[in-house]
Nucleic acid binder design. Structure first.
Length: 750
RNA sequence: GGAGGCAUAGCUCAGCUGGUUCAGAGCAUCUGCCUUACAAGCAGAGGGUCCUUGGUUCGAAUCCAUGUGCCUCCA
């Protein structure tokens, strides 16, 4: 972070596991418990047999895998020899079956509903029940019900009061409940293979199909998740949301703004379908759950300390002595993270302290879209629950960096470049610039070296501009001709205007949290407007000095540009800023005042620039050396758009002589500039046919354009309905096109 | 299966309340230049039925619907 130039308050770092912050976590747990928002319940959890812990739904990654669908026959208990078939991808779970379920409107199975079938190998009798939940068109239409090992089956089991048989240990091995000695003590996957073979041999397999299905895996260990029943602590989110409706409302009505706003939909959808939050984790690190149990493992109380727990227990049991032990489980890490905006300022310990009063709610939260639910939503919840106020006003969702194949950067794939290597290779500024330039809010960033290379090139460009400016010899204005002074002043006026427009533009983009676009504007302002145009405009001929005023203005512009760029490229901008003027001790660009837009009226140089570009273009097209000076004539409607700027055309397009004319000079070539005409005498043989063809192409294009404008203008409804200024603009467009066509036609001798 | 999002130049994306935007940027490509700040550069150029098909409208890349494809989240 420091190497990247992150501008943090490094004196105030905090960690969620610090004693003070941990205390806040425990207090919050107790508070929620006392408010009736936390309960302990036997629920189906995502069990990671490798990590031996429950995971929240958000920590489970669903992956598509190729597996097998086994069709297994269950014989009727009446000894008739009839059987029903079910389809499953997990044949080992048949040992935990407690029922068979069919759809009540399925004609095929109406006869057997209410009868009993036998679980293969165990010969346990289980009932056939009927429920709408079963899809008639999937598998065989018969569903095996295994409440201990499937979420939906668990719900069915609850509904029909079925027993729960749990055949798995926490490590994912079969336990004694499986009853069949061949499988007890073995791994679930080994049993899956073995039981399939055994079933086949015993004539219980109807068929086996290849099947693609989604399997949940642990985000942390990668192990396949087993749905498992266990006692866990939960936050009752429905109740919580009913108590804090602002959590959703504040985002929907933009009291808390999401950038980009499209994230609001995802947020709303999640909250409207929110499920209870499993907050207990079976890990060895973390904040221990402040729940206390007696010798028999019976829950007794929630309390901060053993003493308090004992007090509560003894108050209930008539002051009998009691031995208690604390819950072995710890809290989900997000259970501490969601308190961050408050706990970081000690807002639980001391709700009225100066820090939290000053900083809460903060302005912006910058984070990844993937933790919108884990973290962002829950911080908002905590904010309203404990401070009655939003924790922040804006959430900026960054992109996720992916490689060129759109894969997430990960250690296991080895596709993530080491940021320190990148910094060594391209510079911290280059890396920042490259990444920031191509990362609009909420979009993925496809990483490629060429991006940071562009950043480095930009740093290099700035450095070269600095070298140029620092190398100038400066003399008092009195030693320069009035022409040069005026010319430089004009150039400065022009750039001041550009800078002013850019400042407004950049401000707009910041307001809309379009950081990459703001940076792009700065990039172009520096590279195109300042370096390519302005510096070339004021650059003295080789060996010549520069006048004092122009020099100071140029330095001033440079400083302003460095300030604009500083948030994106902190190192080079500080370095240049320190060296471009004299600074006092302790002065730094990062605390210098930000450039303010000043309403400078900029001269309109658009036609001058177009003239320059046209001349460069023709020179290029004709393969002429830029060293060869050209003479031009201009036929313009408004000569004042050119006359004051002859020096610019001469300097930037290497033109020796300019004059105004009323007609095309003999032997000259036409360069259309807007609706004006610029003529250049090229001392070489012109391919007349090619020139003619080019102009004809231009004419037919303009005529087509005019036709489309005419179509609009002759449409009465358009003229009647469109805004008057728009109609006027269309008329102007038509007139301009007409003039241009006339110019070209005349040049062709038509 | 459900929900949300996206589809614009070779690539990554802008295009906010439909009309100066007969479509814009950066990168990449091509051409010409070692022009005394910069070849990590300079000067130019080419390149798009704005995914399909309908609809609303005087007018649609923009709004609506359908289809197709991709992504994300949840079952």
């Amino acid at each position: 972070m420091k190497k990247l130039g992150a501008s943090c308050d490094w004196d105030r770092t905090r960690f969620t596991m610090e004693p003070k912050l941990s205390e806040a976590v425990i207090d919050v747990f107790i508070d929620l418990y006392n408010k009736g928002l936390i309960y302990r319940g036997l629920r189906m959890v995502n069990w990671d047999p490798q990590g031996k812990t429950a995971l929240s739904d958000e920590e489970v990654i669903h992956k598509e895998v190729q597996s097998k669908l086994y069709y297994i026959n269950y014989f009727m208990a009446d000894g008739s020899g009839d059987f029903v078939s079910i389809a499953t991808t997990r044949p080992e779970t048949i040992l935990a079956d407690v029922a068979i379920c069919v759809n009540p409107s399925d004609e095929r199975f109406k006869a057997i509903v209410g009868k009993k079938v036998l679980v293969p190998f165990l010969n346990r009798e289980i009932p056939v029940i009927a429920d709408d939940y079963v899809a008639m068109d999937f598998g065989t239409g018969c569903l095996k019900v295994t409440p201990a090992h499937d979420v939906n089956d668990y719900a069915l089991g609850q509904k029909y009061n079925l027993p729960v048989i749990d055949i798995l240990t926490e490590e994912g091995f079969l336990n004694a409940e499986a009853q069949d000695a061949r499988y007890i003590g073995k791994d679930r996957f080994a049993v899956r293979k073995q039981i399939a073979i055994d079933l086949e041999e015993a004539g219980h397999i109807l068929k086996i199909e290849e099947y693609k299905n989604q399997v949940g895996t642990s985000e942390r260990t990668g192990a396949v998740i087993e749905p498992r029943l266990s006692l866990q602590w939960w936050v009752d989110m429905k109740k919580f949301m009913a108590k804090n409706p602002q959590v959703l409302d504040a985002v929907m009505n933009d009291e808390i703004q999401f950038h980009p706003a499209k994230m609001k939909n995802t947020y709303r959808h999640w909250l409207e379908n929110i499920k209870d939050w499993c907050i207990s984790r079976q890990l060895w690190w973390g904040q221990r759950i402040p729940a206390w149990y007696d010798e028999k493992g019976q829950f007794v109380a929630v309390a901060k300390t053993l003493e308090e727990a004992i007090q509560i227990a003894q108050a209930a049991n008539g002051q009998k002595p009691i031995t208690l032990h604390q819950d072995e489980d710890v809290l989900d890490t997000w259970f501490s993270s969601w308190l961050w905006p408050i706990s970081v300022f000690d807002g639980f310990e001391n709700p009225e302290n100066e820090d939290i009063k000053h900083f809460y709610p903060t302005n912006d939260l910058v984070t990844a879209p993937e933790i919108m639910f884990f973290w962002v939503a829950r911080m908002i919840m905590a904010g309203y629950e404990w401070r009655g106020e939003k924790p922040f006003s804006n959430v900026y969702y960054t992109g996720i960096v992916r490689d060129k194949q759109r894969r997430k950067m990960s250690k296991s794939l080895g596709n993530s470049p080491d940021p320190l290597d990148l910094i060594a290779q391209f510079g911290a500024d280059g890396v920042r610039m490259g990444m920031l330039l191509c990362s609009p809010a909420g979009n993925d960033i496809l990483y490629d070296d060429s991006q940071v290379e562009q950043g480095r090139n930009f740093a290099n460009k700035i450095w070269n501009a600095f070298r140029l400016v620092k190398g100038w010899e400066v003399k008092p204005d009195s030693e320069f001709s009035a022409e040069i002074l005026a010319a430089n002043q004009l150039s400065a006026d022009w750039f001041a205007g550009r800078l002013y427009a850019a400042l407004l533009d950049i401000e707009e983009k910041y307001k809309g949290y379009r950081l990459s676009e703001a940076l792009m504007s700065i990039y172009k302002l520096i590279w195109d407007d300042y370096c390519a145009w302005y510096l070339e405009m004021v650059k003295p001929a080789f060996g010549d000095p520069m006048n004092e005023t122009a020099f100071q203005t140029t330095i001033h512009f440079f400083e302003e540009l460095m300030k604009l760029l500083h948030p994106f490229m902190p190192f080079i901008t500080e370095e240049i800023w320190q060296n471009i003027g004299s600074r006092k001790d302790g002065e730094s660009i990062c605390i210098a005042s930000y450039p303010l837009p000043s309403g400078a009226a900029a001269p309109d140089l658009s036609r001058v620039f177009e003239t320059i570009q046209q001349i460069r273009n023709i020179r290029n097209a004709k393969g002429m050396s830029p060293k060869e000076a050209l003479a031009i004539s201009i036929k313009a409607k408004d000569e004042s758009l050119y006359a004051p700027y002859f020096f610019l055309i001469q300097k930037l397009a290497n033109v020796s002589n300019i004059n105004f004319v009323n007609a095309q000079p003999e032997g000259s070539t036409l360069l259309p500039v807007d609706t004006d005409e610029v003529f250049v005498v090229l001392n070489l043989v012109i391919d007349a046919a090619a020139e003619k063809e080019k102009m004809e192409k231009e004419i037919s294009y303009l005529e087509g354009f005019m036709k489309s404008v005419d179509a609009k203008l002759s449409n009465e409804k358009f003229v009647a309905n469109a805004k008057p200024e728009l109609v006027e603009k269309e008329r102007q467009k038509r007139a301009d096109a007409e003039t241009k066509i006339a110019v070209l036609k005349k040049s062709l001798g038509l």
